[in-house]
């Protein structure tokens, strides 16, 4: 499916402006809740750019995984770490930020110069109509082992995140908790109200 070239260009311009603006907002806003919602904006505009690149499946996966899972996870983390604190200003903080900005600008100039100057070997084959079937073929033939390893990695990270995030049990209290169910892990009694 090919849409008109002018429409493609305008769509790309709008999506890239949205994405860069939202990304700058993520980095620069003082309130972190605004940053989290703008991060969702970055992810959604990234999914639109993937559609411009003829990748329908990855675009849907981007919205499902990033907006639906990662962004919600970040919002939950913000809610769990809901401490309003004023960060003490560092001495020479402006120097640190300024030098970081200079280095990042230089890196951006270098990367753009390289990507513009290099003669990429652009293929002239017209793109596929749907990307789902080739991706599935890759997953179940030549990328089968990484695919299964990724599922094991997801399981490991899920168990690891639960182990890391749960409250640690009291060592002297272990013997007393033997009366409860064998399926529940002993843990520190929770404080009901926030400090």
């Amino acid at each position: 499916m090919q849409i008109a070239e002018g429409v493609q260009l305008v769509t790309f311009a709008i999506l890239s402006i949205l994405m860069l603006g939202a990304a700058l907002g993520v980095v620069l806003f003082a309130n972190i809740v605004y940053s989290a919602f703008l991060l969702g904006g970055v992810f959604i505009s990234m999914a639109g750019i993937y559609i411009l690149l003829n990748a329908d499946f990855v675009s849907a996966a981007q919205i499902l995984v990033y907006v639906g899972a990662v962004n919600v996870l970040i919002l939950f983390a913000i809610m769990l770490v809901n401490k309003r604190e004023e960060f003490k200003p560092l001495k020479n903080g402006w120097l640190r930020q300024g030098s970081t900005a200079v280095v990042c600008g230089g890196l951006f100039a270098l990367l753009s110069a390289v990507s513009i100057v290099t003669p990429w070997s652009i293929s002239t084959v017209s793109p596929l109509s749907s990307s789902v079937v080739p991706i599935a073929k890759h997953f179940f033939t030549d990328f089968l082992l990484p695919f299964e390893l990724a599922s094991i990695l997801l399981l490991m990270s899920m168990v690891g995140a639960i182990i890391l995030a749960r409250r640690d049990f009291l060592p002297d209290d272990v013997g007393a908790t033997s009366t409860q169910d064998s399926l529940t892990l002993p843990e520190r009694p929770r404080e009901l109200a926030g400090k």
């Binding site: 980095v27 970081t100 900005a101 890196l107 951006f108 990367l111 753009s112 990507s115």
Partner: peptide
């Protein structure tokens, strides 16, 4: 590529 470079530099900053 330039858009990705800009996003990457914002991320590093």
């Amino acid at each position: 590529l330039v858009l990705a470079a800009a996003l990457f530099c914002i991320g590093i900053y």
